[in-house]
Simulated assay, not measured.
Amino acid sequence: MKRPRKPKIAPDRLEQLVAAARTSLEDDKAEDILVLDVTGRSDFTDRMIIATGQVERQLQAMAVHLEEALEKAGLRLRRNQIQASPDWVLIDAGDLVIHLFRPEARVTYALERMWGPESPSPEGAAGA
């Protein structure tokens, strides 16, 4: 069952949240931070941030600091919007979804290939 999509936030507001998240990740020494614009390619979000942390403890700290940074930017997350495992943390902030991976998990899931600019467009997939 598909979850209903919340109303979109204003583009400038989304960019503020992306900037707050990026700054938080840079401060926590996240590696390979990638911001993907998936507008029109995804029906569940408009921006996706993917970043790498070396160990579980770093991932957890990055998640806590991201939650604090987004709250300072005016977006309070509910606990169910953060899903965590030892290798991957997912933060669902509606129009912004953040994936924090340990290196091995990032390679395994390869979200850049799935959602990056080189990935097939929805129109291309329909014709396949």
Rank of each mutant, 00 (worst) to 15 (best):
I9V: 11
A19R: 09
H99A: 11
Q81E: 15
T52A: 06
P7M: 00
L17C: 05
W115R: 06
G127P: 00
D37R: 02
K8Y: 01
M48D: 03
R22D: 14
L59Y: 05
E123D: 14
L66T: 02
T23N: 09
L70R: 00
S24E: 01
Q54W: 03
A105W: 03
L77V: 09
D37K: 04
L36Q: 03
N80Y: 07
P7A: 06
E67S: 13
V38S: 10
D92F: 10
D32T: 03
E15S: 11
V38K: 14
D92G: 12
S42F: 02
I98Q: 04
R57Y: 02
F44L: 14
I50S: 01
E118M: 10
D27S: 03
A84D: 04
G127L: 11
R79V: 07
L100E: 04
V38P: 12
G53Q: 06
L111T: 07
R106F: 04
D27L: 02
P122V: 02
W88I: 07
P103I: 12
E104L: 05
Q58V: 08
T23I: 02
A20P: 01
G124C: 00
E123G: 01
R47Q: 12
L36C: 05
D95I: 03
D87K: 06
R13H: 06
Q60S: 13
D12C: 01
A20L: 06
A20T: 02
V35E: 12
V64Q: 12
H99E: 07
A128N: 09
K8S: 14
K8T: 06
R76D: 00
L66K: 08
R106Y: 03
L66R: 05
V107E: 12
E26A: 12
L111G: 11
R5E: 02
A30V: 05
A21Y: 02
L70M: 12
A63Y: 08
R47N: 10
E104A: 15
H65C: 01
A110H: 11
A126K: 15
R5I: 02
F101A: 03
A20D: 05
V35I: 14
G116K: 09
L75E: 04
A73H: 08
T39H: 04
G40H: 00
V107I: 11
M1W: 04
S85V: 07
M1S: 13
V35R: 04
P120T: 05
P86K: 07
Q83G: 11
L34V: 15
